[in-house]
Design a protein around this nucleic acid. Structure first.
Length: 265
DNA sequence: ATGGCGTCCTGAAAGC
DNA sequence: TGCTTTCAGGACGCCA
């Protein structure tokens, strides 16, 4: 989402939206009925991100919030519209965007900009992983007494906001912590290592332009290259850098990749 | 309150 | 080749 927002910014920032056209209303959540009326003709003042949500602010005091789910992407200046282009935007400068999301796990919403902090999904959200609030001390307090595996806790947006399955697998590997380790039983020393790993993984991913596998694309249509840097994700059966075998386990429909040799505990 | 699982939806890839 | 099965980056609701 960070690379998506960075890619959208030069296209949208400061631009008046000549056309805002919903083409399908039933995403995971229904598109607001007044989306077109409130967004069309408005000028974009800024773009932002909170966790995996993108935000487009307008001079009318509205913020359009979008989530890409698992298969969403913005197509920039598409030649022609395709199936699953659920929203089309055109700017006065003649640029065109299409929000494409085959699985419709993503959604669009519209809130008043001064009420974004109270937007329900944001209200209970934990700190941004790249912000100053994520520290080993914070994690130690947030995870105290928790018996759930550290991997599940890191995917819980109330603990840390914005981590997904890939980044959690990669960060735990870099920190040499077993995904199944009870979250409340990790020393602050190792949590320090985990915080460092989370930041390093995210910063590398952002620098590489995101982790596109197959159905995410950067806004300019190029694929992200971070996927080539995965050390464990998607590498079941390959050798870890330590020589150990990369394993895979499925829990609740989610795959965990890890190296039992260097992630012992 | 906590932890674990199934579900929403479509398409790509793997398996037979 | 062609049909069937498996799997996917997220988040939420339900259950024990």
């Amino acid at each position: 989402m960070e690379t998506t927002v960075r890619g959208l910014t030069p296209v949208l920032s400061g631009q008046r939206l000549a056309l805002v056209e919903p083409r399908r209303a039933d995403l995971r959540k229904a598109i607001p009925l007044d989306l077109r009326q409130r967004m069309q003709g408005a000028t974009v003042t800024s773009l932002g991100r909170r966790a995996k949500y993108g935000m487009i602010d307008t001079d009318r005091g509205d913020t359009m919030i979008f989530h890409l789910g698992m298969s969403g992407r913005w197509r920039v200046d598409p030649g022609e519209l395709l199936a699953h282009d659920h929203l089309v935007i055109e700017t006065d400068a003649g640029r065109r965007l299409a929000l494409n999301d085959p699985r419709r796990f993503g959604f669009l919403d519209l809130v008043r900009t001064d009420a974004v902090a109270e937007y329900p999904p944001f209200a209970a959200m934990g700190p941004e992983p790249l912000g100053p609030e994520l520290t080993a001390r914070y994690l130690a307090l947030a995870l105290a007494g928790r018996a759930a595996p550290i991997k599940a806790m890191l995917l819980d947006q109330r603990i840390v906001a914005g981590l997904g399955n890939i980044y959690v697998c990669e960060a735990l590997h870099m920190a040499r912590i077993a995904p199944s380790r009870a979250a409340g039983r990790i020393s602050e020393y190792r949590l320090e290592r985990l915080v460092t790993a989370i930041r390093a993984v995210l910063e590398s991913a952002i620098a590489a332009g995101g982790s596109t596998l197959r159905d995410f694309a950067a806004p300019d249509g190029e694929l992200g290259y971070f996927s080539k840097q995965f050390l464990v994700y998607g590498r079941e059966g390959e050798a870890c850098a330590c020589g150990g075998p990369v394993k895979r386990r499925t829990e609740a429909g989610r795959s965990t990749f890890w190296c039992p040799k260097c992630q012992r505990t």
